[in-house]
């Protein structure tokens, strides 16, 4: 069971509005593995996991989840998704407990009311991320890092086998990052599989068994997590990036073929 492939991506291509973002990507994650997808902003790393989760349609290629083609996959309770931030819909206050309880719906279904097993799972998940004392507080009053921990608790509450996280540590304070790493470590120690996207690994680094580096829509490296390079290696580096460099001059190359044709 441990050797079964949990995520299997073969020759995947994805594009929006006619522009291809991922070209011919193949990768797989085995049961119990902790894999990080790394890459610069705009490399296509978030698109890759969003496509694996079915949020972005594929252009070409195949994705299997737990050995089932993604299109036919129905057992979504086995997958716990942790998005980058809390959804935009927050016009009405909601407590931490209410948000985490959403994580039980995949297990319970929409017709069955919440029972004692659901309440227990919510409390356990909040304990795992160290936020049980905030269960009755509105999520809007939490710090960014605590909100992120609420989202991981929501995913853990459904007792998934695979946890998929999109940039979990982006903009998260140090205390929350460590609470985060501890919760993920416990999940992995219990045999869980983790696939996460990150810009930098930070305190999650000791957990990562394998890294996949995405660059310009291709897989550029796969194996041991690469050491941070240059000023990224400084402990005090705060990762403020200017906008990506403009594309090389390909767009403005003179159409020499037409010039000669005239």
């Amino acid at each position: 069971m441990q050797l079964m492939s949990v995520v299997d991506v073969r020759r995947l291509a994805v594009g929006y509005d006619g522009r291809e973002i991922l070209h011919d990507v193949s990768m797989s994650v085995r049961g119990g593995e902790v894999v990080a997808i790394l890459g610069a902003n705009g490399s296509g790393k978030s698109t890759l996991i969003r496509t694996i989760l079915g949020l972005v349609p594929t252009t070409r290629g195949e994705i299997d989840l737990f050995g089932t083609p993604q299109r036919k996959f129905r057992d979504w309770a086995r997958v716990g998704y942790v998005p980058q931030r809390l959804g935009a819909g927050s016009g009405v206050p909601a407590t931490v407990g209410e948000v985490v309880a959403s994580g039980r719906l995949a297990r319970r279904g929409i017709f069955r009311p919440s029972g004692s097993a659901d309440k227990k799972a919510v409390r356990e998940a909040l304990t795992a991320v160290g936020l049980l004392d905030r269960i009755g507080d509105p999520v809007a009053t939490l710090s960014g890092g605590q909100q992120q921990r609420t989202l991981i608790a929501r995913a853990l509450a459904g007792h998934p086998d695979l946890l998929v996280l999109d940039e979990p540590t982006a903009g998260v304070d140090a205390a929350s990052q460590e609470a985060f790493a501890a919760a993920l470590g416990k999940f992995a120690a219990g045999g869980g599989t983790i696939l996460l996207v990150a810009h930098e690994l930070g305190p999650l680094r000791p957990l990562i068994e394998r890294a996949i580096v995405v660059h310009e829509g291709h897989i550029a490296h796969e194996g041991v997590p690469p050491e941070p390079a240059g000023h990224h290696a400084d402990p005090g580096h705060d990762h403020l990036h200017p906008h990506a460099a403009p594309e090389k001059d390909k767009i403005c190359v003179a159409p020499t073929d037409r010039i000669t044709a005239v």
């Binding site: 979504w76 998005p83 959403s102 719906l105 459904g158």
Partner: peptide, 10 residues
């Protein structure tokens, strides 16, 4: 609250 999460929850 979070439509994408709801989709991934099936």
């Amino acid at each position: 609250n979070d439509e994408e999460y709801a989709r991934v929850s099936g």
